[in-house]
Every structure is written in structure tokens, then in C-alpha cells.
Simulated assay, not measured.
Amino acid sequence: MAHAFALIPASYVFLRRGDEVLLQLRRNTGYMDGHWVAGAAGHVEPGETARQAAVREAAEELGVVLRPQDLELATVMHRTDGTDHPREQRVEWFWTAIAWDREPVVQEPHKAVEVRWWSLDALPDPVPDYELSVLHGLRDGGLPVESTFGFVS
């Protein structure tokens, strides 16, 4: 009999400027260091919704002010790395925003060393595969509201 596991909830925010997206370069975290990742992302805290987490993370990581209604849901992804490691059993909300207050800048230099705008047609390397799948969906259109990553079909 398979054992039950808890899913780790997280919210990701991709700020959009035309065909560009803001990404951050992670460093010194022990997770995805050296990768370009969503401008803001993090775990949903107890007592907050995924949308509230996205607003909070954008403020904490980029210094921008988002209103909840500024966020558009791109997809909700159920993700795994194929192992039974609890850290890799996730459900993640991917949000986009085209309106915000304040210029985005690195707010947590112990976790990210740079933020930069990238064309969806010319993304940096490396980007985590699961985030790349979302970015390609944003570029190409037709991103499903519910998606999966890492499961054997």
C-alpha cells in the first residue's frame, strides 16, 4: 500500500512587460542555485491563500506592490521529481502580472544576486524545467489552467 504524503503549496509570480518576463538569478540557498527563476516565488504560509502568498512574495523578493486583482492565474501545477521525497511533492500556483507599483529590484541579496528582463523567445540557461514549461506556455499561448510535471504517464 502506498503511503500518503502532504503537498507543499507555493506561489510563483512572473511580472510581464510585453513579451518580456522578469526572472531572478538564485544564489546561496541550497535549492536551484545558479538558475534563473520566477521573479518572486515561495511557500504559501499558514492562514494565507495562494494569491495572498504571491502578493507577499513579490513585495519581499522584488519590493513591488501588487494588488490581488493585478494577478492573473496562468496555471496550477501538480509537480514531482519522481521520487517520494516530501520536498518534491508540490502543488504550485503560477501567476502573471502586468501592473504593479515600484521598480522591481533584488530585496534578498542572500537568495538572489540579480533580476533581469528576458524575452520569452530568448530565455536564459538554466531555468528549472518545470518553470520553463510554464514560460513556454506563456509564450505559445494555450497554457492549461491545470498542469502536471514529472509524473510518468
Rank of each mutant, 00 (worst) to 15 (best):
V113S: 12
T148L: 00
L143V: 12
P124E: 11
L135E: 01
D33L: 08
A122V: 02
D121A: 12
V127T: 12
L15H: 05
R102Y: 15
A6Y: 08
Y31Q: 02
L23S: 07
G150T: 06
F151Y: 15
H43P: 03
D70L: 04
Q24H: 07
W95H: 10
G63M: 14
D125E: 15
Q69W: 12
D70G: 05
D70C: 10
H35A: 14
F94P: 02
V91Y: 03
D84C: 01
L120P: 05
A112D: 08
R16Q: 15
A38H: 06
Q89C: 09
L7G: 04
H110T: 14
P128H: 03
A6R: 02
D19I: 02
W117H: 07
D125T: 13
A59T: 02
A112W: 09
G47W: 07
P144W: 04
A2I: 10
D33Q: 09
V105A: 14
L66P: 02
S11R: 02
L73V: 07
G47N: 11
H110C: 04
A50M: 03
A40E: 10
Q24M: 06
R51G: 01
V152G: 02
L138A: 10
L123F: 08
D33Y: 10
W36E: 01
A40F: 08
L62M: 15
G63H: 13
P109D: 04
D129Q: 13
E131G: 02
T49R: 07
G82R: 03
E88Y: 15
E114N: 09
A50G: 04
F94A: 09
A6G: 07
P46H: 12
E48G: 05
R27L: 08
V127G: 01
V152F: 03
L73R: 13
E20W: 09
R27W: 12
A58C: 07
N28V: 00
A99I: 12
F94S: 00
R139M: 08
Q69A: 14
L138E: 11
R102W: 11
W118M: 06
K111L: 15
V115I: 15
P124G: 08
